[in-house]
């Protein structure tokens, strides 16, 4: 699943450990999310959305939504 988590994290001046701490997950989980090795649960996606104050679909591309022509 395409995402822009790394860019958002860096723009917010957060380290992977900082973000992991805010989300209540391990640093391994943040690395896996940033490298597309883990698709987050809806709960975790909402937590990430809350940290960056952005809608989920601005962070994680919805591959099922029809693309605008």
């Amino acid at each position: 699943m395409k995402q822009c988590l790394r860019e958002l994290r860096i723009a917010a001046g957060l380290t992977q450990a900082d973000l992991a701490s805010r989300l209540g997950v391990s640093r391994q989980a943040v690395i896996a999310l940033e490298t597309d090795k883990h698709i987050p649960s809806l709960d975790l996606a909402y937590k990430i959305s809350g940290v960056f104050d952005k809608p989920v679909e601005e962070i994680f591309e919805n591959p099922y939504r029809p693309k605008a022509a």
């Binding site: 997950v25 391990s26 391994q28 989980a29 883990h38 649960s41 975790l44």
Partner: peptide, 8 residues
């Protein structure tokens, strides 16, 4: 007890 990624 672990997070969802480690659990998976």
């Amino acid at each position: 007890q672990v997070d969802e990624y480690v659990r998976a």
